[in-house]
Nucleic acid binder design. Sequence first.
DNA 1: GTGGTCTAGACCACC
DNA 2: GTGGTCTAGACCACG
Lengths: 134, 134, 134, 134
Amino acid sequence: MRLQINYGSGKPVYLQVVDQVKAAIASGVLRGGDALPGIRPLAESLRVNRNTVAKAYTELEAQGVIETLAGKGCFVRAAASPLRKDARVRLLAESVDEAVVQAHHLQIDKSEFVRLAEDRFDRFADQRDRAARG
Amino acid sequence: MRLQINYGSGKPVYLQVVDQVKAAIASGVLRGGDALPGIRPLAESLRVNRNTVAKAYTELEAQGVIETLAGKGCFVRAAASPLRKDARVRLLAESVDEAVVQAHHLQIDKSEFVRLAEDRFDRFADQRDRAARG
Amino acid sequence: MRLQINYGSGKPVYLQVVDQVKAAIASGVLRGGDALPGIRPLAESLRVNRNTVAKAYTELEAQGVIETLAGKGCFVRAAASPLRKDARVRLLAESVDEAVVQAHHLQIDKSEFVRLAEDRFDRFADQRDRAARG
Amino acid sequence: MRLQINYGSGKPVYLQVVDQVKAAIASGVLRGGDALPGIRPLAESLRVNRNTVAKAYTELEAQGVIETLAGKGCFVRAAASPLRKDARVRLLAESVDEAVVQAHHLQIDKSEFVRLAEDRFDRFADQRDRAARG
DNA sequence: GTGGTCTAGACCACC
DNA sequence: GTGGTCTAGACCACG
């Protein structure tokens, strides 16, 4: 897993780690049961403080994405959101709405927007497939 | 335009204003050339400090969404991103990717994801149409 | 309100602040609606970092003892535990058990233990009365 | 003696062992001169690391609750605090004060507080009696 | 001015 | 070795 921190983007470093770990899971680089990089080694490679990585992992655990065993390490949970389907769709709709608003401001029409949604979804799915076979 | 501030959401008030103005434009409630509410009246109706609204408008101007005419007020710019199409698509792809990652963590499959993308886009488009005719 | 920090007691500073604020409320030095000392002034007088006091106040708010209004200050809540009576008694029993265990190790018999319980309760109640009249 | 470790309570495991041993003595399960379980068997039955149990015993010895005879094992000391009575009462008063403060925040009045103090003391005394006769 | 967040260093608990 | 906590400095959001 290759994380890339963008200092000076305004986005907190720990949130960048959170999002990239979630993206790594969505793209199959990390799968259920896999161990995440240790806090100290990762902090060293990213050139940030140990606590910054620890905060990211704490947030990921709070979101139910990983589970941590003190003294053992942190592991990707075999995903299973405890929410009901309609609640999950509602959450996703908020995320999609943000993209829709941006599409309008970037003057992208519906056909192109939907095509982009399909393309990007496929891109992640393909990576997962490749990782599963690899 | 009806803005709704959610205290206790963690999200800064001025950013809530920014996002809701952008959403209002995307949904046709505000169109190119329209005047935004004055800073003082809006601050009063939202029960927030004038500085907070001023900061939101400053941010919107920095993003090229509105323009301020000293002594006249703030107006929605006749949208026209100065970026080339491929750059605009690339920006939107980042936003779509976030939704795709969340879809995976919320266990939403491709067909449902694409359907949601269409639905939400239509929802905004319909509102624009209605506003244009209204 | 006079807070006294005991460095080198092993007990975290922020917890000492939490307990002393709660004791101040129990003894009537602080009453419902009263404003707590501001974070920065208190930190200065205790010679600790601002964040240490902030953490104590955060914990007090989590316990429902105070409520904080950003930009305004922190205030003592008009106490009202949301728990049912039996739950409250159970919580208190744990605290009492600790005292009972220590009583045995300090070779204090029942009559003296109960007398101490009455005396210390009266002591706090008297202080509350004096503060209410004062 | 039956110890129960509560992972996820935030309280360090070794301190849970310390407190439960002291409670076992207060409740008569362990009496002066009794041998404590060996470090290795206890660690195995609790499923914790031997170092953790060793640390708990070291702490108990530092508090004067038990004594270690190299090669023989650990034994409960025939309790006899070396402190003068007023010093012992002062120590206990601190513990009682904590309970009093909590009683106020839990809205428990004096009569109930004193009743609880008697009840919990009796509970431990009864257990001691039963253990002595058993 | 208020409280809140992010990053960090030092230290602790546990395996 | 692992993760977790406490304290701290600098900066941000808000009134």
